[in-house]
Design a protein around this nucleic acid. Structure first.
Lengths: 223, 223
DNA sequence: TGAATAGTGTCTTTCAGACAATATGCC
DNA sequence: GGCATATTGTCTGAAAGACACTATTCA
């Protein structure tokens, strides 16, 4: 006999989001300060309960807008975390998402920011509430993977960017440096970039700016 | 003010599993026939409600044993599906898993099988209940990805296997054929296999058998 | 002309991919 | 010997990686 939908006590369901951005030449994540128990005063990823009539992705998008003031950014489901004891309040399963926000989006965010939220460099993340450390580690692994095999990196950059900026974010994520000549050769040979003219108002040789071509398939081997 | 765990109606939570195996030279998945509404009489992936005190992975393992009679097999969380209307009974979010069972495990399964479950060739899957077609497509994408970059393929083979058997399952999953010389050159050069002597009782030249070395890291570029 | 960053070419090595002949075991 | 399958090597072309000098803009 098949089990009924009413036979079991239900866990609560939340969506948590690891929001990455580049700021001041560093890879950062957004954390919010918890103002109630448990982990009161501790830092955690933005998140909240999934409403009964919204999809998981919609919940993530709602949180993204409520807590970071951004929309229409790269968003990807990562993993669901459901250890029975992960939340002291009771059984709470969370669906973790990862979002990539570019440095243009972040200006908007700063204006909208009313909560106690703060960007932390990935090298300087405080201890986190719940199992959010595990979520962070998972997200970093996924980010590297995605950087290697897809064009998500460009989601962290403004529409027009210089090759050296692309290289910088790759060096940040992989935590190693690449040869300038080989890197630009590789990126340009992919055929996914469009020239957008020279950058203005810099006090040195201005770099060519590029944008990501429309309709570039998601999967391209990058590095 | 932070939201309370009691403020929201909770969705039901299930775990569904796409169980892959190789049988008769074909890649197959296990489907169970639904004997109650909705989709009564239809085929779906094995699955069930996550108990309030078990982890997501434990729920998947339990289903795996209850419905397929296997344990200690390769198991990986795929994705959580949570469209509000995906289940006509109400709000049900499912965490999809993928399991890989080798042809030795499958013999056990046949003995334990008491439910109306059946293995379907991937080329011959009937129409599926709920959004299980989407789950199947997702799992096939993930399977290819994993075959390309990790050693999961060996989970579909018995402990000792011939190179030609490895090649066959790669050809199945990628749906194309590889050159025998290049394939074995590549697989052997990875340094992840141990020779186990010749196969016995075959009426032609016997192949060398190999096993996967212990402690082989998960990620190795295969193809 | 000095400071700062951009842009570019060659060589070597490695790896993927095309390609076919010989070896072994059993009947 | 015939059948069935296993095993093995070479060549070519493409891409990765090492490596350093010249170009441009502005102050």
């Amino acid at each position: 006999m098949e089990e009924s939908i009413h036979d079991f006590e239900k866990p609560s369901l939340t969506a948590d989001i690891v929001i990455f951005t580049i700021e001041g030449g560093e890879l950062k994540v957004l954390l919010v300060k918890r103002n109630i128990s448990p982990f009161k005063g501790g830092w955690a990823f933005p998140g909240g309960f999934v409403r009964i009539d919204e999809s998981l992705e919609d919940a993530a998008k709602r949180e993204l807008e409520e807590e970071a003031g951004v929309r229409d950014v790269y968003l990807e489901q990562l993993f669901s975390f459901g250890e029975p004891k992960r939340d002291p309040r009771g059984r709470v399963v969370t669906v973790a998402y990862m979002a990539l926000v570019n440095s243009e989006g972040i200006e908007l965010k700063a204006a909208t920011d009313v909560s106690d939220a703060k960007w932390f460099s990935i090298k300087d993340v405080p201890s986190l509430a719940f199992d959010h450390k595990e979520i962070l580690e998972y997200s970093l692994k996924r980010l590297k993977w995605k950087f290697e095999y897809t064009t998500v990196a460009f989601s962290l950059l403004p529409k027009k960017f210089a090759i050296s900026e692309v290289q910088k974010i790759y060096e940040m994520v992989f935590n190693k440096s690449f040869d300038k000549r080989n890197f630009s050769k590789k990126i340009i040979s992919l055929g996914i970039l469009k020239e957008e003219g020279l950058r203005k108002n810099v006090s040195h040789r201005p770099p060519m700016l590029y944008s990501l071509k429309k309709n570039v398939g998601d999967i391209v081997e990058i590095i």
